[in-house]
Amino acid sequence: MKYLLAMYMNPEVWESLSEQDKDDVMTGHGEFIRRIRESGEMISTQALDAPAKSAVVRVKNGMPAITDGPFVESKEFLAGYYLVECASQERAYEVAAMIPDAKIDGLGIEVRPVVFFADSETESEFAGG
């Protein structure tokens, strides 16, 4: 089954880390990617820019309305993700625990099963059938 391993950033937590701790997290991602590629569980990964660089698109009266944002009342934001394929949810938890961010107090990895998957190279796939 496929799982989204979502990494959330809290800028206050990140800024409180030493430069060495920040470097350890960043280089740790390279090692993590190597390990899950070798295991065959890696599908893809993306890192996202800060919310200040994003916009929200809504269609009103048939026309797109674009606003800066999102501006949510939260300290955390989605910073990136790994899409993996694991034999079980327990294995997905094990894989998530290998992500360097999981070791930082105040950060964490959300593990969410994927119920629909489609990309430009494969047929659409619904979980469970």
Rank of each mutant, 00 (worst) to 15 (best):
K60H: 15
R112V: 14
A87F: 11
I43W: 08
D21R: 11
D119P: 08
V115R: 09
E76Y: 02
D21Q: 15
K22I: 07
T45L: 09
E31R: 13
E121V: 10
K75C: 04
Q89W: 11
M42S: 12
A97L: 08
S124V: 15
A79S: 09
G128V: 09
V111D: 02
P51V: 00
G129Q: 13
V13R: 01
G128R: 14
S16L: 00
T45H: 11
S54C: 03
H29Y: 05
A87W: 12
E41P: 02
R35I: 07
L107A: 04
M26V: 14
E90S: 10
N61M: 10
I104G: 00
N61L: 09
L78I: 03
K2L: 10
I109H: 00
D24A: 14
E121T: 12
L5E: 01
A97P: 06
T67L: 06
S124Y: 14
I99G: 01
N61Q: 10
G129T: 15
Y81L: 07
E110Q: 13
M42G: 10
G80D: 00
E19A: 15
E15F: 06
E15H: 09
P64G: 04
W14E: 05
E73K: 03
A52S: 14
D105W: 07
T122L: 13
M98I: 06
Y93A: 08
A6H: 06
A52T: 08
D101I: 11
P51C: 00
P100F: 02
E110C: 04
P11S: 04
P113S: 05
G62A: 07
A102I: 02
R58N: 09
P100T: 03
M7V: 08
I33F: 06
S39E: 13
V114D: 06
E123P: 08
L78Y: 02
Q46L: 14
S39G: 05
F32S: 03
G129R: 14
S88P: 04
S18K: 04
F32H: 08
R58Q: 10
A97K: 12
E12F: 05
M42Y: 15
